[in-house]
């Protein structure tokens, strides 16, 4: 009879070990999952950051190209102004002189 009891005690001791080992595995699984969960936001943030940086580069590149076109157009316009102004300056000086003489009640 004592052999039977001994065998049962041994089996119960083994069962305890099995449960303890399982519990230990459960805790390890939980820790892993929590660690992974904590890291997920950073992973998602990194992916989004890369995507947004690419977007920003593209937007800025397009904007710079457009800016260059705007400035080139302004340069052309400034040249056109210079040409027109040079051509019409004598007529304009006449208007100014006439305007000054008008203060004395006369024209020219």
């Amino acid at each position: 009879m004592s052999e039977v009891l001994e065998g049962v005690e041994k089996a119960e001791a083994e069962a305890v070990q099995i449960r303890e080992k399982a519990q230990s595995q459960v805790e390890e699984i939980q820790r892993d999952a929590e660690r992974k969960a904590r890291g997920i936001e950073q992973i998602v943030r990194t992916q989004l950051t890369k995507e947004i940086e690419a977007l920003q580069k593209s937007v800025e590149s397009k904007a710079k190209n457009k800016s260059q076109r705007i400035l080139l157009k302004a340069d052309e316009e400034a040249v056109s102004l210079e040409e027109q102004g040079t051509k019409n300056i004598k007529k304009t000086v006449d208007i100014i002189i006439k305007g000054v003489y008008a203060f004395g009640g006369g024209g020219k």
């Binding site: 065998g7 119960e12 099995i18 449960r19 399982a22 595995q25 459960v26 929590e34 992974k36 969960a37």
Partner: peptide, 29 residues
């Protein structure tokens, strides 16, 4: 038989505990 039953039950419980933990871990992720 008794010894085997005790050990088998422990193993089954251990398996269940781990399976539940894995489900819980997936949900958490």
């Amino acid at each position: 038989v008794i010894q085997k039953t005790i050990v088998d039950e422990a193993k089954a419980e251990a398996k269940r505990m781990i399976a539940e933990a894995e489900v819980s871990a997936r949900q958490l992720t």
